[in-house]
Amino acid sequence: MTLVPGLKVVAGDRVIDNGFVRVEGERIAEVGAGDRPTGTAAFVLPGFVDIHVHGGGGATFTTGDPEEARKAAGYHLQHGTTTMLASLVTSPPELMMGATKAFAPLAAEGVLAGIHFEGPYLSQARCGAQNPAHLRHPDLAELGALIDAGDGAVRLVTVAPELPGALDAIRLLVERGVVAAIGHTDATYEQTLAGVAAGATVGTHVFNGMAPPHHRRPGPVFALLGAAGVVCEFVADGIHLHDGTLAFATSVTGPARAALITDAMAAAGMPDGRYDLGGQGVDVAGGVARLTRDGSIAGSTLTMDAAFRRAVGAGASLVAASRMASGTPAAAIGRHDVGELRVGARADLVLLDADLNVQRVMRAGTWVS
């Protein structure tokens, strides 16, 4: 049994003063309040859940190397991310298949919560840092083979709904128990809602990689923000989104439909310099990652603890920011055993100091060294 006290414990929709979390084995046995000894953490939160991350700590998910994947997952774990999807970028079919087979055992082991395919069924016009040489229209046979190869590991796939065959691809994903997301899209408002009607329930880094909203052409941004059943991802780094945009967008969705993500690449936690993302050169300067070829934003160097701090700085309450960083993204991928401090949930905890910096991390009842 482990007792974890905190001056403030963020549990669901409440903040418990002088609270505690009692852990037995890998699960939470009790969350309550009482007099706690001094020297406790300022804040105890559920472990962060990142459903869109490409790498970190100098390692990448995008090549399909399992040792690189372990290293990247370990880096983000140190920053409080106890549940994460390995996001792959647009790639040749053989690389996607190889990575799926390589990462399936890591998902079974619990190192990863699964795989996210950000591509290759995306818009040429809104490809951003995706490699345009490998973009293609949805292929149901390819998609089905990837799902089969993952044996449950494929959890999320981003699709541009305006492409030929995209709605059928979204329906196939839903039928196979995979979450469909809309992103990197030049779709109209109506085409976006058609994707939602087909079963898409996530908006991939909303605002980024999609047609900007206009009062006569609302496009995918307004469609996704207004769709009651869609969780909208937001990259809260002050670069992808102005803090005012983040505050406005999350006021529209509410914390139950807003998921903070990092979209981090290998350069997260590393010095400025030249990196690779999906076979493309990326220059990182001042912590900002941009494609060498055209200066497009290429992922981020963000961590989830920094995203949490940014959301609070932009005006979110502790409860709202915690839900956006944990509970909402967990629910978006069907993980109801993580993302909240409640009895029976997996004991994933992040202890923060008064400045919201990570002090200590617990995953499945074990402290991270």
Rank of each mutant, 00 (worst) to 15 (best):
M1Y: 06
T2E: 07
L3Q: 03
F20L: 02
V23S: 04
E24A: 09
E24G: 07
E30Q: 07
V31W: 02
V31L: 01
A33Q: 15
G34L: 07
D35I: 04
T40E: 02
A41H: 07
A41S: 08
A42S: 02
A42V: 03
F43I: 07
L45M: 13
L45I: 10
P46E: 01
V49E: 12
H52K: 07
H54W: 10
H54N: 15
G55K: 03
T63V: 03
E68M: 08
A69E: 12
K71F: 08
G74I: 10
Y75G: 11
T81D: 14
P92K: 14
G98M: 00
G98S: 04
K101C: 12
F103Q: 09
A104C: 06
P105L: 00
A107I: 15
E109P: 05
V111W: 03
A113V: 15
H116K: 13
E118I: 07
G119K: 04
P120E: 01
Q124L: 15
R126A: 05
R126G: 02
C127A: 11
A129T: 06
R136I: 11
P138N: 08
D139N: 10
D139C: 10
D139K: 05
G144F: 04
V154M: 06
V154S: 05
V154W: 04
R155L: 15
R155W: 15
T158G: 05
V159F: 08
A160D: 06
L163K: 05
L167Q: 03
D168W: 02
A169R: 07
V174M: 05
V174A: 08
A181M: 09
I182Y: 07
H184Y: 12
T185S: 08
D186Q: 09
A187S: 08
T192G: 04
V196N: 06
G199N: 09
N208M: 03
P212L: 09
P212Y: 09
R216K: 09
P218E: 00
A223K: 04
L224C: 06
L225Q: 01
G226T: 00
A228I: 03
V230A: 03
V231H: 05
V235K: 01
D237M: 01
I239K: 00
F248R: 00
V252Y: 01
G254K: 00
A256M: 03
L260N: 07
I261W: 11
T262K: 11
D263I: 05
A266G: 10
A266K: 07
G269P: 13
G273K: 06
L277W: 08
Q280M: 13
D283F: 13
V284P: 12
V288R: 11
R290T: 14
S296W: 09
I297S: 00
T303I: 13
A311W: 04
G313K: 01
A314L: 04
G315H: 02
V319E: 13
A320D: 15
A325C: 13
T328H: 03
A330I: 15
I333W: 12
G334C: 15
D337W: 12
G339D: 14
L341Q: 07
L341D: 05
R342N: 08
V343K: 04
V343R: 05
G344K: 04
A347N: 11
A347T: 12
D348Y: 10
L351T: 09
A354T: 13
R360W: 01
R363D: 14
A364S: 15
T366S: 14
S369N: 13
